[in-house]
Amino acid sequence: MDWRKTEIIFIIAFLLLDIFLGVMFLNKQATNDPDKLGNDTLQDHLKTDNITYPELSSKEVYGEVFTADKVTINEKDVSNLKNPNDFTY
């Protein structure tokens, strides 16, 4: 077997691999630019991902984040539980 040809093939293969990995690294660095990412708004990200949403109001809303309805629990509801002793009210 001709080791000289094998050596040349390995050198060319690793050179091409190094070039490919270098290009991939530079592309990743260019897309992960912190200055570029910081300037994009949420709407820009949604538009890039083809996510649609209804028109949102620009009116400021004040209030609670979570809401709940008050429910009265009676004896019948407690008796329907699997283990009524675990329920505290």
Rank of each mutant, 00 (worst) to 15 (best):
M1L: 05
D2K: 03
W3D: 11
W3I: 01
W3K: 05
W3F: 02
R4M: 01
K5I: 02
T6R: 15
T6I: 09
T6V: 10
E7N: 07
E7M: 02
I8G: 01
I8C: 00
I9A: 09
I9F: 05
I9S: 10
F10W: 08
F10S: 13
F10N: 13
F10P: 01
I11K: 06
I12D: 11
I12C: 04
A13N: 10
F14I: 07
L15T: 10
L16D: 05
L16I: 08
D18C: 00
D18Q: 08
D18L: 04
I19V: 10
I19M: 08
F20Y: 08
F20K: 10
L21Y: 05
G22N: 06
V23C: 00
M24L: 05
F25Y: 10
N27H: 02
K28C: 01
A30I: 02
A30Y: 10
N32V: 00
N32I: 02
N32W: 02
N32E: 14
N32K: 02
D33A: 03
P34L: 03
P34W: 07
D35G: 03
D35R: 08
K36H: 03
K36L: 05
K36A: 11
L37D: 11
L37M: 09
G38W: 01
G38N: 13
L42Q: 14
L42C: 08
D44L: 00
D44P: 04
H45D: 15
H45P: 00
H45Y: 11
L46Q: 03
L46I: 07
L46A: 08
K47H: 07
D49S: 09
D49M: 13
N50Y: 06
N50P: 00
I51V: 13
T52S: 14
Y53L: 06
P54R: 13
P54G: 05
P54Q: 14
E55C: 01
L56G: 00
L56H: 06
S57K: 07
E60W: 05
E60L: 07
V61M: 12
Y62L: 13
G63H: 08
G63F: 03
V65L: 14
F66K: 09
F66T: 06
T67W: 08
T67D: 12
A68M: 12
A68H: 09
K70D: 14
V71K: 15
T72S: 15
T72K: 15
T72M: 10
E75D: 13
K76S: 13
K76Y: 10
D77C: 01
D77W: 05
V78Y: 09
V78R: 12
V78P: 03
S79F: 04
N80T: 11
N80Y: 07
L81K: 01
L81Q: 09
K82V: 09
N83V: 14
N85R: 13
N85F: 07
D86C: 05
D86N: 12
D86E: 15
F87T: 12
T88N: 15
